[in-house]
Design a protein around this nucleic acid. Sequence first.
DNA 1: TTAAAAATTGACCAGATAGACAAGATTTGT
DNA 2: ACAAATCTTGTCTATCTGGTCAATTTTTAA
Lengths: 216, 216
Amino acid sequence: MINRTMPRGPYKPGKIRQKSQQTMLEAAIQAFSQYGYSGTSMQSIADIAGVPKANVHYYFKNKLGVYTAVLGNILDMWDTVLNDITIADDPATVLCRYIDAKIDFSRTHPQESRVFAKEMLSGAPHLQEFLQAKYTTWLDNRLSIFRHWIKVGKMDDVEPTHLMFMIWGSTQHYADFAPQVTQSLGTDTLQQEHFDAAAKTVKQVILRGCGLTPPE
Amino acid sequence: MINRTMPRGPYKPGKIRQKSQQTMLEAAIQAFSQYGYSGTSMQSIADIAGVPKANVHYYFKNKLGVYTAVLGNILDMWDTVLNDITIADDPATVLCRYIDAKIDFSRTHPQESRVFAKEMLSGAPHLQEFLQAKYTTWLDNRLSIFRHWIKVGKMDDVEPTHLMFMIWGSTQHYADFAPQVTQSLGTDTLQQEHFDAAAKTVKQVILRGCGLTPPE
DNA sequence: TTAAAAATTGACCAGATAGACAAGATTTGT
DNA sequence: ACAAATCTTGTCTATCTGGTCAATTTTTAA
């Protein structure tokens, strides 16, 4: 997406283009996640990718094009989990699976999480479309399921929207506020065990807080 | 703090200097909270403050000086709450007070919250001293009180560090992810009632999740 | 092999930015 | 009132940045 040129004619496009773009996108997300949009220069992206700056301009229309491509990749990861829940499911199981998945995302994709967070902190100017379209329906569907569970007594009357915010906030924290977390836990780098302990506590509090008991 | 010149001699310093600096700091936090450090120009700060750019340079050593002054002001707000808790206190009361205070901070100081969050997201290069000194002892003191409450059975065995992260993450979310929150709640701007509902849900889940019952 | 398409790259440009500076205006203590 | 200190502000500069372009090299399909 966001290619400037779309190769045509007697030529099989793709391989070089795809690989180069991928390299540059990975360089870009690294830069954006640390320095933000304004703090990242095309030159620095090129340096990280190990190519001349003009090469980045060849594959992307401009700096905003690189950024929106990065953002698009991140948004594509959005609904991987909690996508197939139904009214028949067990709330405790669903919440556990979601919390585990979110914590795991903070562990395996901290850079993506930070780019997303920085965009939000800047007022989400490039997420309006996403928020109004894809996200809203995604959320509404899940909220209605939670509301049903509450109505039939499967869980306590906890306002579902704010419950979701609690889970998001609690789990994102481990990626976005990593310096504070590492300092608090007295470690240099966050290890698997730290994320496991985090998931355990979040699940314990959320489930109990909703009047649920851990599955199995 | 971070003044370039410290007036001396037969002259009563302060009034003009203090007022001008205050105006510029308010302009600066507004700019930094939205556009980040790199995205904010000295010119934009001057424009917001309504003064020529050279005036900003007169009162602050350089751009980093403005930023660290802003950051320092924010850090000074840190321990206003949860500062005087003791072992004798009631856990439920303390947690409620803290959650209310944090949510209220997100409501009344969203810009400060966002500047702090952006600094964290960038790896907190200017917070190392704060994190290692003031913050660590602050946290350790509170954690030991939580651990005592757990030991004597006043609350469930919930890992206190991660419990604190849950509260921080959940409450910060309303300032830092405001675009997502407003979209989810179907409103244009967050009102008092939304923050009240947020505080209610967070308190409900956290307290119940720790095996506590709401006070009085 | 070869010609067209695609990819690479160095050089260049216009605008923005942080910061310096000096001249002038204002405030202060006496 | 007046001199010293502080404050204000227009102007200037060196540097950085996003973006363009044309020349060269590499890859591809026939």
